[in-house]
């Protein structure tokens, strides 16, 4: 028997999940479940379980939509945000949560990501960023660090990587954040705030992939990779208290951008209203 949390929010007949030993995705998926659990139990909000929709694309990350026991849809590669856009438009009251990966959301689905961010469409995109295409055998992705080895870059990756949180910020996301597997409690809190945010929210969560990425790049075991996160990914308050010198090679974990832009479906509802007024409720013609 699993814990009450897992029993409540996951399809336990599909568990244990298929992710490799030490893969960080299970921790991120648990963070999502805990964040939703906190929102459902919070009396300040009147959430119903059916207010949450989980949408995923293709890749290791996207298995999560099959495990999380909510209204969920496992879509095609790169198109999770496109499907989520349709769901949000059909019923703007829903909290639509997209679980995606670095390849799914910044390569194949890169355009959907930047335009959903630009429009400030009220989705929550959580990227399980393992810095590689794990499921298909370890090809480099848009977030694989420069110089790292991958199945398709045996002499080192020539590309410069995307920083997905900064990419979303640049594209106009009103909420952009970075989390990781090691700082699970902090990341859960970021995800909770991202879901509550009225507008496009992105959380780029650094996963660990000891099997495909770690092994090719001599990053050691899952424990070593988590230890690296502990030492190099620093929560906001602590990060800003550090000297420039001490920050070298380290990254900030936390909410990186927050703006109160109008949400897209709210703005669209105004267009519908204006159209109705002008045409006496009949639409055009």
């Amino acid at each position: 028997m699993p814990s009450d949390l897992i029993h409540e929010y996951m399809r336990i007949d599909h568990l244990p999940q298929i992710w490799c030993a030490g893969c960080g995705n299970g921790v991120i998926m648990r963070d999502v479940a805990v964040a939703i659990d906190q929102l459902l139990k919070d009396e300040e909000y009147d959430f119903d379980r059916d207010d949450f929709v989980i949408v995923s694309g293709i890749g290791c990350s996207s298995r999560a939509a099959g495990y999380l026991d909510f209204n969920s849809i496992h879509t095609t590669h790169g198109r999770a945000i496109a499907f989520a856009t349709g769901i949000k438009f059909a019923n703007p009251k829903l909290k639509v949560i997209v679980l995606t990966g670095d390849g799914d959301c910044s390569a194949i689905g890169g355009n959907h990501l930047i335009h959903a961010a630009r429009r400030n469409l009220g989705l929550t995109v959580i990227c399980f960023n393992n810095h590689i295409y794990g499921m298909t055998g370890g090809q480099y992705s848009p977030t694989t660090p420069n110089g790292d080895v991958a199945a398709t870059a045996p002499y080192g990756n020539v590309d410069r990587p995307f920083d997905i949180a900064l990419l979303a910020t640049g594209a106009g996301a009103s909420f952009s954040a970075r989390g990781d597997v090691f700082h699970a409690r902090e990341t859960t809190e970021i995800i909770r705030k991202a879901i509550l945010h009225d507008g496009f929210s992105l959380v780029d969560v650094y996963s660990i992939c000891p099997t495909s990425y770690g092994r090719q790049n001599h990053k050691g075991s899952a424990v070593d990779m988590l230890q690296w996160q502990k030492e190099n990914l620093i929560p906001t308050a602590q990060f800003h208290a550090m000297s420039e010198q001490a920050r070298a090679g380290k990254k900030e974990i936390g909410i990186l951008a927050f703006n109160d832009y109008p949400e897209y479906t709210d703005e669209y509802a105004k267009v519908i209203e204006a159209c109705r007024k002008q045409t006496g409720g009949k639409g055009r013609n």
């Binding site: 028997m1 699993p2 568990l15 244990p16 030993a21 075991s221 424990v223 988590l226």
Partner: peptide, 17 residues
Amino acid sequence: LVVEPLWCKGCGICAAF
């Protein structure tokens, strides 16, 4: 403290942390 051995993949994270 409850352990579900069938679900454990032996990654060692719990023991290390």
